[in-house]
Amino acid sequence: MSVVLKTPSTFQQYKTLLRKDLEQEFRTKEMITSMGIYALLVLVVFGAALGQTTQALDLLQVSGGLLWTLIVFTSLLGLNRSFNHEKEQGCLEGILLVPLDRSVIFLAKATSNILFLLAVEVITVPLFYFFFLTAVTPGESFWLLVLPLLVGTIGMAGIGTLLSTITVNTRGKDVMLAVLFVPIIFPLLFACASATTAIIVGAEGAMDVFYPALLLAAGYDVIMLLLSWVLYDFVISA
């Protein structure tokens, strides 16, 4: 049989790469389990740390920040793992040998990271609510929490994908990712934590904080994703 090659569209290649990540995850459930258990353990630690807090108001004001602490540490764990499979058997080189646009690799990896992180959040955020917020009354528009979660996850997974591509090639990669990741996502974290706290507390004028913060976080996402997308070619080819 003679082999005919017809270069697939960028979108098809994106789907193929994304499907590969999902197939792997369905088989091993490695990312979801490790991130999920880790998140649960962080919740337990919070429980110990907050053991002496009795005043409902205190809990309301810190819970937004705590939720984001949980997400940052969980995503660090996930991002660290996300390129381990690609490096383990040199698969990344195999992918680079294929005629495809380098940014497709970025988009596919960022998408799979977003999906895994969202899946973990779907489990942990209700748990967080169950453990810490059932005793107090969060603001009425509590459900708006979904928006900062989504914006924050997209930004973290986006820039995190670029950074983990860098750190997977360094010595001491776990530490290195944290050292780069935390300061660089600080603005996003600050904005998302502000928005989340505003709606959880639900005080008068909460929306005056919520929407500007959300908008700024979204702006960060757009700028940083574009930047990562442009710089990814250099990083992956190095």
Partner: peptide, 17 residues
Amino acid sequence: REHIGLISHNSMLYPDL
């Protein structure tokens, strides 16, 4: 790249697929 194949000491295969 369409004309290239590479076999190295790394298998370049995903162990979990």
